[in-house]
Simulated assay, not measured.
Amino acid sequence: MSEMAQEAERRSASDRVADAILQDIRMGRLVPGQHLLEPELTARLGISRGSLREALKHLAADGIVSLSRFRGAYIAALDRKSVLDLLDVLEPLARLAARLAAAASPDRAQCEPLLESAARLAELQASGKRGEYLTERRRFYDMLVDLGGNSELARVIPLSRTDLFRTQVESRQTDSQRHRHAMGYTRIATAVAEHDSAEADKAVAGHFAGTRETMAELADEVFPAS
């Protein structure tokens, strides 16, 4: 195998590991603060220690994993300020994604998967299936960005970091807080389907206002010390 082919294979394995860890975070199989055991991960994913460590370095660069010389690798946990900082970055990008999606004037058939995803989020929130809820939430944002057609937005919007934050707080929210969060997606999807950019922007702004309200209501013990 050529050196180029070996590098491509290592990169493919590293990407596969990163995707698996992110999915485990969304499904609640890995939680913020949890130590990652190299032997378990290499055996479960069928990859080498080198590929695993490369993937962990990429995830550390994205703020998903923390690497320590003495503690090894563990899933990062966000303090309250980091969460608020993340929301400050994510909100304008999410509002842009919604405006672009609405302005693209997709027909009803193109918008139907987004509307179905919003309805699915409401169902999953009501049923308490938190892992599936967080996975569907990521799918909703991916579709919203795709509808807008801006490929650069997909590169810069910090959805993986947001997956981590949502996993951290999801189990600590009240039913009313979860309901408020889920209903935000219905308002966004409806505005996009109606081609109303202003309303889509307003819906995202309201969604984030609700999230900040929830963050203010959560106890300090939800967040590690800064």
Rank of each mutant, 00 (worst) to 15 (best):
Met1Ile: 07
Glu3Leu: 15
Glu3Cys: 01
Ala5Ile: 14
Gln6Glu: 14
Ala13Phe: 04
Asp15Thr: 09
Ile21Asp: 04
Arg26Gln: 03
Arg29Tyr: 09
Leu30Tyr: 07
Gln34Ile: 03
Pro39Arg: 11
Leu41Glu: 04
Gly46Trp: 10
Ser51Arg: 04
Lys57Asn: 07
Ala61Trp: 13
Val65Lys: 00
Arg71Leu: 12
Arg71Ala: 14
Ser82Glu: 14
Leu87Arg: 04
Leu90Pro: 02
Leu93His: 13
Leu93Pro: 06
Ala94Asn: 11
Asp107Ser: 13
Asp107Phe: 12
Glu112Gly: 01
Ala118Arg: 03
Ala118Phe: 07
Arg120Trp: 00
Leu124Ser: 03
Gln125Trp: 04
Gly128Ser: 00
Leu134Gln: 06
Thr135Ser: 12
Arg138His: 13
Met143Leu: 15
Leu144Met: 14
Leu144Trp: 07
Val145Lys: 06
Ser151Lys: 13
Leu153Ser: 03
Pro158Leu: 08
Ser160Pro: 04
Thr162Asn: 13
Asp163Leu: 08
Asp163Thr: 06
Arg172Phe: 06
Gln177Leu: 02
His179Pro: 00
Arg180Ile: 02
Gly184Arg: 01
Tyr185Cys: 02
Thr190Leu: 08
Ala191His: 08
Ala193Asn: 09
Ala198Met: 05
Ala198Lys: 10
Ala203Leu: 08
Val204Gly: 08
His207Arg: 01
Thr211Met: 14
Thr214Trp: 01
Phe223Pro: 03
Pro224Met: 10
